Computed example of a mutant assay.
Amino acid sequence: MTTTPGWQKSSYCGEGESCVHVAATPATLHITESGDPAGSILTAAPTAFAALLRTLKTESPRG
């Protein structure tokens, strides 16, 4: 039996902006954009997603 993951909106999303939504299952993370939530869903293993976040934090101009 497959269950639909519960989506959470990014805490960095302001009102009226296009937002990133994330959902987790035990072995997979799902990421989508609020402008087209069912259109494109990125799926990643938790370790790959953690590596992406580390890279973004390291290379971010704000970071």
Results as ranks from 00 to 15, higher is better:
23 A>S: 03
59 E>W: 11
41 I>W: 02
23 A>K: 02
37 P>D: 04
2 T>H: 08
20 V>T: 08
63 G>T: 05
62 R>E: 15
26 P>S: 01
43 T>R: 14
56 L>T: 05
44 A>V: 09
55 T>L: 13
24 A>T: 09
54 R>A: 15
31 I>N: 01
11 S>T: 13
16 G>Q: 02
41 I>Y: 03
60 S>K: 07
15 E>D: 14
6 G>E: 11
21 H>D: 07
52 L>F: 11
13 C>T: 03
22 V>T: 09
34 S>W: 05
30 H>A: 07
2 T>S: 11
50 A>C: 03
53 L>G: 04
27 A>V: 06
44 A>P: 04
5 P>S: 02
36 D>H: 12
21 H>T: 00
33 E>K: 09
7 W>A: 03
63 G>S: 09
43 T>M: 12
52 L>G: 01
14 G>W: 09
1 M>S: 14
5 P>V: 00
20 V>Y: 05
4 T>G: 00
34 S>I: 04
49 F>T: 04
34 S>V: 02
9 K>Q: 14
20 V>I: 14
55 T>V: 06
29 L>V: 09
52 L>T: 01
33 E>I: 07
63 G>F: 11
3 T>A: 14
23 A>F: 02
4 T>V: 10
16 G>N: 01
59 E>F: 13
37 P>G: 02
24 A>F: 09
9 K>P: 08
12 Y>F: 14
1 M>Q: 13
19 C>P: 01
32 T>P: 01
53 L>F: 09
19 C>F: 02
18 S>L: 07
18 S>D: 08
41 I>S: 03
14 G>N: 10
2 T>Q: 10
41 I>C: 03
3 T>G: 11
50 A>M: 08
26 P>T: 00
55 T>Y: 15
13 C>N: 03
55 T>N: 11
8 Q>L: 06
14 G>L: 08
26 P>R: 01
52 L>A: 06
27 A>T: 12
41 I>A: 04
25 T>R: 12
28 T>W: 00
62 R>F: 14
25 T>P: 01
30 H>G: 00
1 M>R: 15
34 S>H: 02
9 K>D: 09
54 R>L: 14
32 T>R: 12
19 C>K: 02
43 T>I: 05
38 A>F: 01
48 A>K: 13
37 P>R: 07
48 A>W: 08
3 T>D: 12
28 T>L: 09
38 A>D: 15
2 T>W: 05
17 E>Y: 04
27 A>S: 08
51 A>L: 13
46 P>G: 06
2 T>A: 10
60 S>H: 10
53 L>M: 15
1 M>L: 13
23 A>I: 00
55 T>G: 11
36 D>E: 11
19 C>A: 02
45 A>R: 15
7 W>Q: 03
50 A>H: 10
44 A>L: 15
28 T>Q: 13
51 A>S: 15
12 Y>A: 11
37 P>Q: 06
